[in-house]
Design a protein around this nucleic acid. Structure first.
Ligand SMILES: [Zn+2]
Ligand SMILES: [Zn+2]
Ligand SMILES: [Zn+2]
Ligand SMILES: [Zn+2]
Lengths: 134, 134
DNA sequence: TCAATTGCGTAATGCTATAACGTGTGTCAT
DNA sequence: ATGACACACGTTATAGCATTACGCAATTGA
């Protein structure tokens, strides 16, 4: 799958996230984009929904906030369908690190299979402190 | 550590969660406990906070809801300090299954150590469908 | 007894997310 | 062309989740 052409609103939201140092809440994004014509939360939420579908943005459940997908920063805009995404979230500086591990995925897949459970979406978020914030 | 004596409010909230078939939101708990004198969200949130400290209740980040810890249902009320807790959450029936795996924990510990990250709290939540709801 | 801690109650507020409505625009088969 | 449809957009209102701030009462321990 190739990343589709983004609408104006989607591009604005993705840019806001991509340039942020830390995850942004929907309302923070809204504030950042008021100068660009954003007036209501729904404009942000609608864009975020699509961007998540496209795999360009992740939602951090434990923060009620959003980050741009890190996998694609160095690449072109081809969609990289990654499996389970994990996040290390520093309580000190707010920095979020996205990482992946296939061994982890396999192990988890095995565990849920044992329970006859069918996975649709996996959330793994690790709160703590990064190297610089111990 | 032994589970401390619970206050009246804490007991009421824990009971509500323990008897529920699915996770409950704070406001749902509030409604269930109005007959017992609960009038404001804060009464619920304060109880939940303590119960989480005691390890008697877990918060599901992806649902903004709470469940009683499953580990202790068959035991006395001795505090069982479990490591990483994982949840399988069925979108069909709402049922939540708590499970643990030390291999998983070790692997995860290794991964974060590689990043020089210090874990304080780990959230693992798997959304999908259970055996009965495929 | 005094101070510190802890839990409780109430009101107000703030933050997060969605529902419901209508508009405009492009696509496509007829 | 024209109608049907899909889709993005804009606006308002509302729903749902969580915390701040203040004061009181009971408990504990010096
Ligand atoms: Zn990603
Ligand atoms: Zn940090
Ligand atoms: Zn538990
Ligand atoms: Zn089910």
């Amino acid at each position: 799958m190739v990343t589709p052409i983004l609408t104006k609103n989607q591009s604005l939201v993705l840019d806001a996230l991509a340039h942020a140092e830390a995850p942004l809440s929907a309302y923070t994004i809204l504030d950042k984009l008021r100068d660009h014509g954003f007036r209501a939360p729904l404009q942000v939420y609608r864009a975020l929904e699509k961007l998540q579908e496209f795999g360009l943005v992740h939602r951090l459940e434990s923060l009620n906030a959003f980050v741009a997908c890190a996998c694609r920063e160095d690449h072109d805009h081809t969609h990289h369908h990654h499996g389970v995404t994990m996040f290390a979230i520093c309580e000190g500086c707010g920095q979020v690190t996205e990482f992946h591990d296939t061994g982890m995925e396999e192990r988890l897949a095995l565990l849920v299979k044992k329970q006859h459970f069918k996975t649709e979406k996996t959330t793994i978020e690790i709160r703590g402190h990064c190297q610089n914030c111990v």
